[in-house]
Simulated assay, not measured.
Amino acid sequence: MNPKNTPFLVGSTVLTITDPKNNLSFPVLLHYPTLDGSKPTPFGPFIMDVAVDGVLAEGKFPLVLISHGNSGSQYVYRTISTYLATRGFIVAMPEHFGNNRTDNSLSDSVKNLEYRPQHISLIIDYLLDKTTFKQQINPNTIALIGHSFGGYTALAVAGGKPYSMTGEAISTHKDERVKALVIMAPAAGYFSPKSALDQVNIPILLYIATEDIYTPKKWTADVILKGIQNPEQVLLREIKNAGHFSFISPFPDGMKNPSFLPANDPEGFDRVAFHEELPEEIFQYLEEKLTID
């Protein structure tokens, strides 16, 4: 990915993606390799060391998209996104329309189940066709990372045929351009019906947390391993003593309180230390699984 094995700095910019079919738009945060000087920059309550609108470094780079969880944010996987950018990835992180921290009006709706995977494909379309980045993205090395409901999104993009909680078939389309998945505590229950995952045939790095009360193993790993045609394509990582939200980047101390569940972990779990290891592990997996021309 980075032939000199020397980390880049992190460029950062924001795109607006339009969905003309549904008459809506949504922002996408990009992190990418740059040689421009970076500085600590506020993004909401978070600080990231980035070069805002920095020039993309020379080279041909893989594209990775990160899909956040229900009512989540494009900022909360920054430990992963910034690390991958320093290792030569272009990382695109949407704020999912109607299912984010400021507007969660589509939560639990069929529209949300449909929009999320559609919008991932729209982002890929846009990046490969309408941005200055298009000449430097290797279209054969595209991966998708998803946490929680983002894991649902990733499985749908990879060919999964989801069903709503009332048993309604959801209209989605497989995006063949996505070559690998990393899914963390995924909301896989939407793919419980037989044959729902038959068309998912790409490598998957699957993380589950032993203390996850929201997406326990029976609704994540068991569904996926029993549902796909080739379970050998799944690398299962079971994180001891972790909770559902442990895959989110650590929050600033001022946001940590017992009532704010995303900032909390099971007693004794060190989220800061975990996020010093997680991005490197994801990088190593993607470097191995994405075929470079």
Score class of each variant (00 low, 15 high):
residue 201 N to K: 04
residue 279 P to D: 12
residue 152 Y to S: 08
residue 246 S to W: 00
residue 110 V to N: 12
residue 129 D to E: 14
residue 54 G to E: 02
residue 86 T to I: 00
residue 67 S to C: 08
residue 4 K to W: 09
residue 76 V to P: 00
residue 268 G to T: 06
residue 120 I to S: 04
residue 187 A to K: 03
residue 34 T to I: 10
residue 243 G to Q: 05
residue 228 I to L: 00
residue 24 L to Y: 03
residue 19 D to C: 04
residue 1 M to D: 11
residue 275 H to Q: 14
residue 57 A to S: 11
residue 247 F to I: 09
residue 139 P to M: 09
residue 276 E to T: 15
residue 180 A to E: 12
residue 271 R to Q: 11
residue 124 I to D: 03
residue 3 P to Q: 06
residue 20 P to S: 06
residue 84 L to P: 04
residue 149 F to I: 14
residue 269 F to N: 08
residue 42 P to Q: 07
residue 218 K to V: 15
residue 124 I to V: 14
residue 144 L to T: 00
residue 205 L to W: 01
residue 72 G to N: 10
residue 125 D to E: 13
residue 25 S to C: 13
residue 264 N to K: 10
residue 109 S to V: 10
residue 17 I to F: 04
residue 101 R to M: 10
residue 134 K to F: 02
residue 135 Q to R: 09
residue 43 F to P: 07
residue 97 F to C: 14
residue 159 G to Q: 02
residue 183 I to N: 02
residue 30 L to I: 10
residue 23 N to Q: 07
residue 6 T to I: 14
residue 201 N to I: 11
residue 184 M to E: 15
residue 182 V to D: 06
residue 35 L to M: 13
residue 182 V to F: 07
residue 198 D to F: 11
residue 102 T to W: 00
residue 88 G to K: 03
residue 188 A to S: 15
residue 52 V to S: 13
residue 201 N to C: 04
residue 275 H to D: 12
residue 229 Q to H: 13
residue 144 L to H: 04
residue 256 K to V: 15
residue 80 I to D: 05
residue 212 D to R: 09
residue 240 K to Q: 15
residue 278 L to H: 05
residue 217 K to I: 15
residue 247 F to M: 04
residue 199 Q to R: 06
residue 234 V to L: 01
residue 293 D to V: 09
residue 124 I to W: 00
residue 28 V to S: 07
residue 92 A to T: 10
residue 76 V to Y: 13
residue 270 D to F: 03
residue 185 A to Q: 03
residue 62 P to K: 00
residue 240 K to P: 05
residue 86 T to D: 03
residue 240 K to V: 08
residue 104 N to W: 10
residue 270 D to Y: 05
residue 108 D to M: 15
residue 21 K to G: 06
residue 126 Y to D: 11
residue 185 A to H: 01
residue 70 N to G: 15
residue 204 I to C: 09
residue 254 G to S: 00
residue 8 F to N: 11
residue 224 I to Q: 03
residue 134 K to V: 04
residue 217 K to N: 13
residue 230 N to K: 12
residue 92 A to Y: 02
residue 108 D to C: 11
residue 103 D to W: 02
residue 164 S to M: 08
residue 176 E to Q: 14
residue 47 I to V: 15
residue 40 P to N: 12
residue 118 Q to F: 01
residue 137 I to A: 06
residue 64 V to I: 09
residue 157 V to K: 04
residue 71 S to E: 09
residue 261 L to R: 12
residue 226 K to Q: 13
residue 107 S to K: 13
residue 236 L to F: 01
residue 42 P to F: 12
residue 74 Q to H: 14
residue 228 I to K: 01
residue 66 I to R: 03
residue 105 S to W: 02
residue 20 P to K: 10
residue 47 I to D: 08
residue 108 D to G: 14
residue 10 V to W: 00
residue 290 L to Q: 05
residue 199 Q to F: 00
residue 42 P to D: 12
residue 65 L to D: 10
residue 11 G to Q: 00
residue 37 G to E: 13
residue 137 I to E: 12
residue 195 S to I: 05
residue 183 I to A: 07
residue 260 F to R: 10
residue 149 F to E: 10
residue 180 A to W: 02
residue 224 I to K: 03
residue 257 N to I: 04
residue 243 G to H: 03
residue 6 T to H: 08
